Computed example of a mutant assay.
Amino acid sequence: MGFRSIFVLAVLMGVRGSPTPGAASADVAAHSKMTPETAEETGQNLVLGVEDNVMATGELKPNHYPAQRAAKVVQHYLNTRYGSPYRLFGLQRVHSGNAEDVADSGRKYQLEISVQEIISNMTQKCSAEVFFPRGEKSLLAQVKASPCEELLNNDTKAQEEALYQQYKNNQSLLSAQYLPDSYGHIEPDMKPFWHLAIVASSSIMLNESTQDTLYNMAQVANITQLATENEQLKFQCHVLLHELVSQEILHWKLLFTWSPAGGVNVLEMEQLPHCHDCEKPPTTN
């Protein structure tokens, strides 16, 4: 699929916009029309400070890049473990952070953060530890986080079961494009699938995260429900991720399943070739 439009960078946090013809007309003014749910779900309430390239050790400034990058990894971790169509986690605030080198093996961050469960609008302060191993890229970031039990108390079982039964028994399989559209809009019945795509994409962002990256979900280019003979709903999804440090838009293809009992299970993930027809988002200050 070719993409011919200009993706508009929402101020410092995330790209919006549909890759449909005519989407180039969506500019910063269109960003102001974004729904609060979409702004929060894509992490646009995150505040970044100016930081140089020297990796800080000891106490960190909460709004500067080192602390924010590590804290964002915690968000991806929580979504991969506990996320669902009706439960989605976002980083609301970093209260404090500390970084230390661990011999020659890597770098450890101790964080106090506020995590928001976006859909219920509940917030809880949690502790987390993020360890970035040194060496091969295949070594993934390791995360330990307090369970944030209050955020898990919101009972979503009835909603999840209703959604599951609806699409398990549908005669026609779901197919949707451009979540959100050029103006940040998502139809209400498509929001659970936007949430599902974010949860599934968190697996990519968790795997790809290093001390030098900061990932955010930008858009679902398309999502298609596939036929399955087991009890899981199966989806193929093309998502756009925004790497804020490099300002790149990265295209990934995902194959994942979901059920209320089994949660989200990513079966395949593949980064697609760079989209040469897509323009790079403008740099913002």
Rank of each mutant, 00 (worst) to 15 (best):
E117T: 05
Q110S: 14
T224H: 15
S201R: 01
L60M: 07
Y77N: 08
T20R: 06
Q44K: 11
D212G: 08
D189T: 11
I204M: 04
S120M: 05
V94T: 02
A10K: 10
S259T: 00
Q166I: 06
P36F: 04
T283L: 13
I119D: 00
T123M: 11
L139G: 00
A218D: 05
Q110L: 12
D27T: 10
M269N: 06
T224M: 08
E100Q: 09
L196T: 05
N63K: 10
Q271R: 11
N121K: 14
A70W: 01
H64E: 14
A218S: 15
F235D: 05
G106P: 03
R16V: 08
A176I: 03
A145G: 09
G58F: 06
G58Y: 09
M205F: 03
A197I: 05
L174H: 06
T20C: 10
Q159V: 03
S127K: 15
L179W: 03
S202E: 03
D101M: 12
L214D: 06
G106K: 07
L173M: 14
K280D: 09
H185E: 10
I249A: 13
T123I: 15
L255G: 03
A145F: 05
G43W: 03
T213N: 09
V94L: 06
Q92T: 02
P21E: 12
L250F: 01
I119W: 04
F132S: 02
G49M: 12
S127T: 09
L240S: 09
L255S: 03
Y164R: 03
K280P: 01
H31V: 10
M34P: 01
Q247M: 13
D277N: 15
R16K: 11
D52W: 07
A71E: 08
C148D: 05
Q165D: 13
P147L: 11
P273C: 09
K61R: 13
M34C: 02
Y82H: 15
K253S: 10
M205P: 00
T156M: 08
H274D: 11
S5Q: 12
H195Y: 09
I119Q: 01
M122E: 08
L244E: 11
D277I: 02
K157M: 05
I198P: 01
Q159C: 10
M34D: 14
Q124D: 14
I223K: 00
H238N: 13
G106R: 05
F131M: 12
Y82M: 04
A261S: 14
Q92D: 13
H238W: 11
T284D: 10
C237E: 01
V74D: 00
F132E: 00
A71S: 14
F7G: 14
T224I: 09
E150R: 15
Q44L: 04
N169H: 13
W258A: 04
S32M: 11
L240T: 04
H95R: 14
K168F: 11
P180V: 02
T80Y: 05
A30R: 06
E41Y: 06
E270G: 00
A29M: 07
Q271V: 06
S175Q: 13
L244G: 03
S201V: 00
K108L: 08
A141T: 01
P180M: 00
P282D: 15
S203P: 01
K125S: 13
R16A: 10
L240M: 13
E229K: 13
V130T: 05
V143C: 11
